[in-house]
């Protein structure tokens, strides 16, 4: 009997924990006839630090970790190309693209790790308390909390004033007007109770953020062949194909709550979107350049392949 340790940085009430990780562990425990057991360390435990997930699993302190590619920044330059603005606003498409590209283009970034799944959330929105944003001009000088350097840079280009802030402090900062808004998908809007202090939501679908779910290779190799087969059966494609629906379902409550509260939800208009993309072109070029400077010579090729895979996914959904 083996007990595997899993760590992640989300509170144990999050869908990642309740809908994805816990059921996954139960499937494998059942499949192995109880041979493999799990112990999960979520946010609030010492192993729940968002910046340490990759390192912990590499060092073998935990056997499996779920974390963000972007923190600490720069560790997954290839995978993080999925963060480029306006690539896709669909969790399903982004997760599909990452998984399709993994063997040929991204594998190098996961040496020593058995990759169980890669995924990304639905396009984030711009949520504001007092000011309704529809155009680039509306953004001018707004203080906006952002989740990542890529989004910070994007907002700077658009004229806003990005603020780094721990998620737990967003509610009070919005309530007091220390910030004018925040960039988030719907799911944290619901879980942090932000609909109480927000009024407007601009569905800009401009960016996504990606996650890894990985196992220490030595831990995997130490499993019996039957156990390995069980892990394989419930990971990879079996997991990745579910993230589109999962993220949709995690986003629904936040959106419904906003509608029930009478908030205004606006889509970014097509002309406006074109203006934003044009404004952001220099930023995208320099982002690609940074990735190339980090030693990824085929950054353009990977970016193109991501676009192709996303188009492929969208096309398959149309039929």
């Amino acid at each position: 009997e083996t007990t595997l340790k899993i760590s992640h940085y989300l509170p144990s009430v999050h869908g990642i924990h309740t809908d994805f990780i816990v059921p996954w562990t139960e499937q494998i425990t059942e499949c192995t006839g109880g041979e493999v057991q799990f112990e999960i360390f979520p946010a609030g435990t010492q192993l729940g630090n968002v910046a340490r997930q990759q390192e912990q699993v590499m060092a073998g302190v935990v056997d499996i970790a779920h974390g963000l590619h972007g923190i600490p920044r720069g560790r997954f330059p290839r995978t993080s190309l999925i963060d480029m603005p306006f690539l896709t606003d669909s969790a399903g498409a982004a997760s599909y693209a990452l998984w399709e590209l993994y063997p040929d283009y991204l594998a190098e970034e996961y040496k020593g790790l058995k990759v169980l799944a890669l995924h990304a959330h639905n396009g984030g929105l711009l949520h504001t308390n007092e000011k309704k944003v529809e155009t680039m001009e509306d953004m001018d000088g707004l203080r906006i909390r952002t989740p990542s350097p890529a989004v910070s840079e994007m907002l700077s280009y658009l004229g806003a004033d990005p603020q780094g802030l721990p998620p737990g402090e967003v509610y009070e900062s919005l309530q007091r007007g220390v910030i004018d808004g925040t960039v988030f998908p719907w799911d944290p809007v619901k879980s942090f109770g932000l609909n109480e202090v927000l009024n407007y939501h601009l569905d800009l679908g401009a960016y996504t953020v990606s996650f890894f779910y990985v196992m220490n290779q030595r831990s995997y190799d130490a499993l019996s062949d039957e156990a390995k087969a069980c892990v394989d059966q419930y990971s990879g494609d079996a997991l990745v194909s579910q993230f589109g629906d999962w993220w949709d379902s995690w986003d629904v409550p936040g959106r419904e709550e906003a509608i029930a509260a009478g908030h205004e939800i606006t889509e970014l208009s097509d002309e406006e979107r074109a203006r934003w993309e044009e404004t952001l072109q220099p930023m995208m070029d320099s982002y690609l350049q940074t990735v190339k400077d980090a030693g990824v010579d085929n950054a353009d090729e990977i970016y193109q392949a991501m676009q192709d895979k996303i188009a492929e996914y969208e096309a398959s959904r149309q039929n």
Binding site: P11, V13, G168, E169, Y171, E172, K190, S191, F192, G193, E196
Partner: peptide, 19 residues
């Protein structure tokens, strides 16, 4: 007494109204 990050976190964990 607000500011109170603890109450915010509790609200998040139980989905109760932070207000």
């Amino acid at each position: 007494i607000p500011p109170s990050v603890l109450l915010v976190i509790y609200g998040l964990l139980t989905q109760s109204s932070i207000g």
